[in-house]
């Protein structure tokens, strides 16, 4: 598994990155940790004549928590998400999700930006960010813009990001209430058979708000507004869980692969979602 030759660029600023993307067009790709892109290049399934390594860009690896608002630079790694104690307090779902991604070595290199940017249906963070209602921040030749994570994913490996734009950060309001990231996989290092991100707030013994998203059960992450709505106002009883699952099952569209046939995935999706909701409710 040997990649094709490429020219390597390690720019120091975003302006340089944008210029390189402008100059080389489709022939250029940016790389953060490389743990999605490099395997594809080694298999020669991705051809990248110009590789732009983002590691020297300043401020791209910052975690800022200010006045209840959290911003994560694209180069923040899964390992950073796990070990950042303040973040673990303010948005513990990130730590819980990051711990279920790949393995320790991959988490040192794998970044939030790489996980979010490309629309790989197997990645976990897109669902988490949809659950959190995050905004994805892009910089391109025409400047900066921001897209809701819930609007960013169009199809497998197709996103709202243009080829000449770079995902630079993601930001969201620090969540409150109970949380859970529940994932079934075959082994460490596998993508999800089914995974669910759930945030729940509680008021007077009832669910005040709920946000529910699932991973790898469609060609895009699935945030189900209806599933969340089905929970609101309930005490998370059996009927509410069933209603949320029914709503989610209406929104997912899994396909058969080595993890199993569609019927199995749909069933497991329901089970995992119920477990995630129940756990989040228990923490709310």
């Amino acid at each position: 598994m040997i990649p094709a030759a490429f020219d390597y660029h390690r720019p120091k600023s975003m302006d340089e990155v944008i210029a390189l993307l402008g100059e080389h067009g489709d022939d250029a790709r940016v790389m953060a940790g490389g743990h999605s892109l490099i395997p594809m290049m080694k298999l020669r399934m991705a051809e990248v004549p110009h590789l732009i390594d983002l590691q020297d860009i300043e401020n791209l690896a910052e975690i800022t928590i200010e006045e209840g608002h959290i911003s994560l630079g694209a180069m923040v790694t899964q390992h950073d998400l796990i070990t950042h104690s303040k973040l673990a307090l303010r948005a513990p779902i990130l730590r819980e999700a990051a711990l279920q991604i790949a393995d320790p070595q991959v988490r040192y290199m794998g970044t939030i930006g790489g996980n979010l940017a490309n629309g790989d249906p197997g990645n976990d963070m897109p669902g988490v960010m949809q659950c959190l209602g995050a905004r994805i921040n892009l910089i391109g030749p025409d400047g900066a813009r921001s897209v809701a994570a819930r609007d960013y994913y169009e199809a497998a490996y197709m996103t709202d990001r243009e080829d000449d734009e770079v995902l630079v950060s993601v930001d969201f309001q620090a969540p409150s209430g109970g949380y859970a990231y529940e994932k079934q996989k075959r082994k460490i290092g596998d993508y999800a058979t089914a995974a669910a991100a759930v945030m729940i707030t509680k008021s007077e013994g009832k669910i005040a708000s709920a946000s529910v998203a699932m991973t790898n059960l469609s060609d895009v992450p699935v945030w189900s507004e209806e599933a969340g709505a089905a929970l609101v106002g309930t005490a998370c009883d059996g009927a509410a869980l069933e209603a949320a699952v029914a709503a989610m099952l209406g929104d997912i569209d899994p396909s058969e692969d080595n993890r199993g046939p569609v019927a199995f995935k749909r069933h497991v999706a329901g089970v995992i979602l119920k477990r995630a909701i129940t756990r989040a409710w228990g923490r709310a």
Partner: peptide
Amino acid sequence: HDHWRIWQTANGLGLH
């Protein structure tokens, strides 16, 4: 006996 095949066995036996 991976997850889906075990699930399928349970399913075939009416356990779901």
